[in-house]
Write a protein that binds this DNA or RNA. Structure first.
Lengths: 221, 221
DNA sequence: ATTCACTATGAATTATCGTTCATTTTAGCG
DNA sequence: CGCTAAAATGAACGATAATTCATAGTGAAT
């Protein structure tokens, strides 16, 4: 490779980095504004102000308003996916422990991104078909570690046999409930107590009685 | 009461009936348009066309666009509330049977009003504070029969003791999941099989082993 | 210093839409 | 058939907001 080529490659890389930084700047601002007002009520002017850039600049980094929404949502879902498996790996091999840790982490992430979770429920309808498909695929991908743990547990007979997919989605729904029904749960529960109570309730169903004493710390709130 | 007064009262009643009919006509149209396009994308012109009335008329029956949204959502939630308890009363006194019947009916209603359920999740943010409060109150009211069954079951020791409120809301979330995640469940489940599978899963957690044989028809899909 | 490519600006454009209101139609009644 | 009040109409208004584009700044290379 020639020197000139190396230099041009580095320049390319620098530009790409700057581009990413700007995009993130806009996306963060977008999430912030949307959590205050909602997507439709967010004017491009308001977004530009929040991000400290001009309106015109938004259009050099994104195709339009809807593309910003999609990018913001995908950004969030990606961080979901990337954080789940590591948290589960940290607790070892036992499928039940992995499942409990996964549910815990998932719910914590929901808590840390409550507005973002609500956003995905509220605004998905706005997206076009391609965008929706991307979101659905990411959701399935994200849930994979949980499903793996459920299946592993069933294979070893530690988890009562049932449809692993149904169990996985139910767990996700209960985690989402923390964001969707915060107005109802918040007065009585903290994230911590919510997680404990749900874990106890769910595992009661999933672990056969004979195995239950092994997991007393999880089954009893 | 004079004859004149009687007549004027009847006229009043007739007018009120006509008003209600017109309001329902508009509300039905609104739900239809919103399920196609979403609230923000629905123009008053489009709504007027769907309802076969003029734009101006909308404003003689409703205060504005947002008031139509609120009315539509409340209409739906009211029908939820009115249909649940009768279905539970039909199966008798046993709390577990009542709970299962309640969950079944609730999920069926969700299925019959899928778009409407999605609407409440998508568009609640749009409503003002007073509107939101009304919705939350209705949701709590609707869930009351389920909660009653749960509490009755716990009092009699037929249902494992836990936070009845948490159990109730979890059940509602799982029913809502049928609408929220239809894209995921629909290929594999029908409403019927979905209800059976969820019922089995949930009751496994709620009924102590000693009692389980009594409810084999519910616990086994 | 000048050029050049890239980045950024924000006023102007264009379009849509919620709301109003002057006007017309309808229905009931003497 | 008029008469009146209620019901209904839809063009016009005013406001907002997404998008474009002519213009300006920036800084590295010649």
């Amino acid at each position: 490779m020639s020197l000139a080529e190396s230099i041009s490659e580095m320049e390319e890389a620098v530009r790409s980095l700057r581009r990413d930084a700007r995009r993130r700047q806009v996306l963060d601002a977008a999430v912030a504004v949307m959590q205050r007002t909602g997507f439709h009520e967010m004017s491009m002017q308001a977004l530009a102000n929040e991000a400290s850039v001009s309106v015109g600049l938004l259009y050099t980094y994104f195709g339009g308003k809807e593309e910003i929404l999609l990018a913001a949502v995908l950004d969030i879902l990606n961080s979901f996916r990337d954080q789940l498996r590591p948290a589960m790996d940290a607790v070892g091999d036992d499928p039940v422990e992995r499942l409990a840790a996964g549910f815990r982490r998932y719910t914590e992430i929901v808590d840390e991104n409550r507005d973002a979770v609500l956003l995905t429920y509220r605004e998905s309808r706005t997206l076009d078909h391609a965008g929706l498909e991307q979101i659905k695929e990411l959701e399935v991908e994200t849930s994979a570690p949980l499903r793996d743990a459920v299946e592993a547990g069933m294979a070893r007979g530690i988890i009562r046999s049932a449809d692993p997919d149904l169990v996985t989605y139910d767990l996700m729904m209960l985690a989402h409930a923390w964001a969707l029904k915060a107005w109802h749960f918040e007065p009585k529960y903290s994230v911590e107590t919510f997680i404990r109570a749900q874990t106890a309730l769910v595992l009661q169903s999933l672990i056969p009685p004979s195995r239950r004493s092994h997991y007393r710390h999880l089954v009893e709130g």
